[in-house]
């Protein structure tokens, strides 16, 4: 494996794709919203803490009580319940950003016919795929981590109690952000490669690929409906499932991303 080639591809992708306003908008605006929204919610629920003095654990959905630690007050448990819904928003960041970058990068190369000269260089298709995948997923992973870091750092400033902060900076969220996020980014990049090989418009590729958000939305609605509570066990199961999905997606991506396929079969 030639790391110089991979670095060159990443450098090229970033140089090109970050000149695209649509990509920049998605990379900056979406994580910003997803970071600010839960902070605003926590700020206002914190302000209302006085009024929530009467809130007891009986007011928190029964299915969710297991997520609250024994030292939490009813109001804190309610805050944790509310903020837990936003965890899934943070998990969308590593799906949406790579999809946008990969769609513009691969469909863009198709429409400008720049893939063929690139394939005529000594770079292997695997190196090219790794370069493109890293170029699309690294910004998403980093932006996701930064958003989460800023979110956690802002919590004490908003007067959020230690118990709630401990929960947010605890294993469920950390597993989601540090492990599930990158796994989802890998899967979404490979799905976008597959979709991009069939369409000639980046927006179409982006829209089809974001169907990958459906499982996350499913989790969100299941939690809101009280069917499941996202805790460490659920997150570990999700990560296990994502590893299997990744294996399938990487296989799909590498089988479609072959010189001969790209030049003769991609429409």
């Amino acid at each position: 494996m030639n790391f110089k080639s991979i670095r060159t591809i990443i450098d090229k992708e970033w140089a090109e794709v970050f000149k695209n306003r649509m990509v920049l908008f998605t990379m900056i605006f979406m994580p910003l919203i997803f970071t600010v929204l839960p902070l605003v919610m926590l700020y206002f629920t914190g302000q209302e803490m006085g009024d929530m003095g009467g809130v007891g654990t009986a007011d928190v959905p029964a299915e969710f009580l297991s997520a609250c630690s024994s030292d939490m007050t009813g109001a804190e448990c309610m805050q944790v319940y509310l903020v837990n819904q936003f965890l899934l928003l943070f998990m969308m960041v590593p799906v949406i950003i790579p999809v946008t970058i990969a769609a513009y990068s691969i469909v863009g190369e198709k429409t400008t016919h720049s893939l063929e000269p690139l394939l005529a260089t000594p770079i292997s298709t695997f190196e090219l795929l790794v370069g493109k995948s890293l170029a699309a997923s690294l910004p998403a992973i980093i932006v996701g981590w930064i958003s989460f870091g800023l979110f956690v750092a802002a919590l004490p400033l908003l007067g959020v109690t230690k118990s709630v902060i401990n929960y947010i900076a605890g294993p469920t969220w950390l597993l989601a952000i540090i492990i599930a996020g990158p796994l989802m980014a890998i899967a979404s990049v490979n799905l976008t490669i597959f979709v991009s090989s069939r369409v000639n418009d980046p927006r179409t590729a982006e829209q089809i690929s974001t169907l990958f958000l459906l499982p996350i939305l499913g989790l969100l609605f299941a939690q809101l409906a009280g069917v499941i509570v996202i805790n460490v066990m659920v997150m570990l199961s999700f990560i296990g499932g994502m590893i299997l999905v990744d294996i399938g997606m990487v296989y799909l991506g590498t089988s479609i991303f072959q010189r001969e396929n790209i030049l003769t079969r991609w429409k």
């Binding site: 090229k12 140089a15 090109e16 000149k19 695209n20 400008t112 016919h113 720049s114 893939l115 063929e116 000269p117 690139l118 005529a120």
Partner: peptide, 15 residues
């Protein structure tokens, strides 16, 4: 060891 000029120039237009 070969140089190829493809049918379309295929340049990175933003760069």
């Amino acid at each position: 060891n070969v140089g190829v000029l493809t049918e379309h120039p295929g340049l990175y237009e933003r760069l």
